[in-house]
Design a protein around this nucleic acid. Sequence first.
DNA 1: CGTTGCCTTGATCATTATCAATCATAGTGG
DNA 2: CCACTATGATTGATAATGATCAAGGCAACG
Lengths: 252, 252
Amino acid sequence: MGMKQAMAIQIPCRECPLRQLPLFITHSAEELELLQALKQRELRLAAGETLILEGQTDTPLFTLLSGWAFRFKTLSDGRRQILNFLLAGDFIGVQQKMGDAAAHGVTTLTDSLFCVFQRDALWELHRRSPVMGFNTTWLIAHEESLVDDSLLSVGRRSAEERIASLLILLFKRAAALQLDGGAAGVPFPLTQQHMADALGLSLVHTNKTLRKLEKRGLHELKDGRLYLRDARALTRLADVWGDGKPTPRPLV
Amino acid sequence: MGMKQAMAIQIPCRECPLRQLPLFITHSAEELELLQALKQRELRLAAGETLILEGQTDTPLFTLLSGWAFRFKTLSDGRRQILNFLLAGDFIGVQQKMGDAAAHGVTTLTDSLFCVFQRDALWELHRRSPVMGFNTTWLIAHEESLVDDSLLSVGRRSAEERIASLLILLFKRAAALQLDGGAAGVPFPLTQQHMADALGLSLVHTNKTLRKLEKRGLHELKDGRLYLRDARALTRLADVWGDGKPTPRPLV
DNA sequence: CGTTGCCTTGATCATTATCAATCATAGTGG
DNA sequence: CCACTATGATTGATAATGATCAAGGCAACG
């Protein structure tokens, strides 16, 4: 299964692809030194490999430097729910307390590069740099709020609406990591099975719904890339807040 | 709608009902002083009142001192998804960055008492006590991981399984706040509509499923209290990890 | 008593799941 | 170059699950 060696030479944190993200912009040289010191090593995985197994204990903390991955939970008969997708810049493993078993697994969608931190790195970060500790807290809280959106989709949106909102969300997230902002589409490494597992739909129904939207000209999925052909219509369908409409909600 | 006055005399933080929770146990007198200093005021709401409106900006941070509440999102046609239930000791409002609009609303289920903090209290906490900042981060991450469970339920569990897992989860959380550990049941202030909105089911189907489980003797819901009559069977039905069974998952 | 809110139930309908094929593509070994 | 295999996409037929509609019931309350 194409297991590759960890690189002998690591990327220094001042060259880290995350440096331009909110968490990292304001940091002084010494804060970068701190990050560097806490960093344990890098880890490279091929597509489809598993970083964290459900139930595993004492997993380290990770940061995703490049590639795509996802967090998931399964039931004992194999039903799987994808909790969210991970893109470059995301944290991994903050949900479980030290000593606890991982409540979810993490698997890659593409070849991926991770930065590995010891479990107590988060505490060191707080202790030695309250600013970075604080920023991290917000980042974690914000990342987790993506799950809130998913829950709204899966709980209350129709199949069409779910597909639409997933496409929009992933497009936005992926486009934000590109220089062209998605003008030429974005990479889209999910299979329809992944989409089904993220949206709480069956594979077959996912396929049919996807085809329907594509035939209507809302999007195009081709050669592993996603193009939004009618972002307006997709947004309307997904009922996404604050995009087309300026929050017209009655607010009681 | 029974809006009540905020109490003139506030509970000092050293008397706070949260003091025995993980976040608060290890704290020195001066750390309690810090909490006290950051605390702005207390707020009392009646059952069914709204603490935060979706889309509201610059809401303060809250802590729930007593009572029950829930976080939710709605679609523009009124479909509502309850994200999670809030019990004494929970944080509220950490999901949105300063200046952002609230991505979810918060409404009470019972008469409730909140502790109100300024929005920058979280930063002050980090700056002046890295330990408490760190603990807060974990607490937030852990609270948010409850949503992961919900997502698994709504996405992949059948109606019966969803009901079972909700009953178990809420029972455990509520029982942990009682001295008797739930021996005489726990308060259960949700209507079936709330359960439906949390589980992604219709009201009618929620009712039927609930009745079915109750007739089978798995639980009893009476006078606003929940009793688990066959916790083993409920756990099996819900496929909850690490309870009856010692993690028998294959882990591939 | 007449509301009002919440729970309950039966009948019917819709959406989504399941089952079963087929097809396309890429990789593998002979 | 040709089976042989494997993965993923696609489609039609049928079944199941859960939603919607409609109607009461029951208790609390002014």
